[in-house]
Simulated scan of single mutants.
Amino acid sequence: MQENPKVKDIARADELLRTFDLKQPVYTLQPGDVLSLKVQSTTPTEYNFLSTGVSTFGATDPVLDGYTLDAEGNMVLPVIGKVNLNGLSMPEARIKVTEALKPYLTEPTVNLRLLTFRYTVIGEGGGQGQFTTYQDNINVLEAIANAGGFSPYSDRASIKLIRYENGQAKLYKFSVLDDNVLAMSNFYLKPNDTIVIDPLPAKYVQENLLANIGLTLSLIATLTVLIDRFLR
């Protein structure tokens, strides 16, 4: 689009720069997880005891309407009773619930979602707070984007990840400026992870040093005027 473009400085849009092998963790269900369940079947509605399912987009909190896995990891369903999902991935859990429904419903189709995948983003970002996602493979960049992205003073080379596992708080630090972050095992979040975005040193300079310098110069100017008037 330019009259005299520098061809050597223009990247090729169809050129593959690099390929990374992603290390997506497989989340396994555990006691306390809350799941939404929606079941479709060819069984007439009056005989389908799960036909209404659980709405995840209603005005009420979907967690309150979901199925909470008990201390042994069981989902307790009407008519069927307990279905143990402890240690299963979401695809495995869908298959097991489907098999449990087959004796009662004709050709059941199960839609199962995890409602308690929460994470927190704090620090020098576009927004802060606790967020909930209905996908179980969200990565750090997606989580930060959901929170409003980076601010002008975000230190993209200093991102901390706090993870709570087995009674311990584990701290990881990485840079999203490094392409290799895409292949790191901690690039994908786990429930209850906390992301901390550090500020750039320039923010401290602007908010503290420059403000103090301005105040100091103002005081010097005031004192100079007073001394000049006193000497006259």
Results as ranks from 00 to 15, higher is better:
169 A>W: 06
165 E>K: 13
231 L>S: 04
126 G>D: 07
172 Y>K: 05
60 T>E: 14
17 L>S: 10
171 L>S: 06
17 L>N: 09
207 E>G: 03
194 T>I: 14
219 L>I: 14
173 K>P: 06
96 K>V: 08
100 A>I: 11
12 R>L: 11
46 E>H: 04
101 L>F: 02
198 D>L: 00
201 P>H: 14
43 T>C: 11
27 Y>M: 06
206 Q>G: 02
192 N>M: 12
228 D>H: 09
15 E>N: 12
160 K>L: 12
48 N>I: 05
176 V>M: 10
28 T>F: 05
204 Y>K: 10
79 V>C: 00
95 I>M: 12
214 G>N: 13
221 A>P: 01
180 N>I: 05
76 V>K: 10
116 T>D: 02
28 T>C: 09
17 L>T: 13
198 D>G: 09
1 M>V: 15
218 S>R: 05
79 V>R: 08
115 L>E: 01
189 L>P: 00
138 I>Q: 09
36 S>C: 07
125 G>T: 09
207 E>I: 05
125 G>F: 01
45 T>E: 04
72 E>D: 13
141 L>N: 04
138 I>A: 01
54 V>G: 02
91 P>Y: 12
230 F>C: 08
101 L>S: 08
28 T>R: 08
19 T>P: 06
50 L>N: 02
186 N>D: 10
13 A>W: 03
53 G>M: 07
109 T>K: 09
113 R>H: 11
118 R>A: 12
175 S>I: 13
92 E>H: 07
108 P>W: 03
217 L>S: 10
195 I>Q: 00
24 Q>N: 11
19 T>I: 15
133 T>R: 05
215 L>K: 10
92 E>K: 05
106 T>N: 03
20 F>A: 09
152 P>W: 08
165 E>Q: 12
141 L>K: 02
116 T>I: 09
23 K>A: 12
25 P>G: 11
71 A>Q: 13
82 K>Y: 14
14 D>E: 15
215 L>N: 10
71 A>L: 15
64 L>M: 14
26 V>L: 02
177 L>P: 02
216 T>N: 09
188 Y>E: 03
156 R>P: 01
105 L>A: 01
66 G>M: 04
115 L>K: 04
32 G>K: 13
139 N>T: 03
81 G>S: 01
28 T>G: 12
8 K>R: 15
106 T>W: 01
206 Q>W: 11
57 F>A: 15
210 L>H: 13
52 T>W: 13
107 E>V: 04
68 T>A: 07
226 L>V: 06
31 P>F: 00
82 K>I: 04
81 G>F: 07
8 K>A: 15
122 I>A: 04
67 Y>H: 13
16 L>K: 06
78 P>V: 07
26 V>C: 03
86 N>S: 03
100 A>N: 03
211 A>H: 14
121 V>F: 06
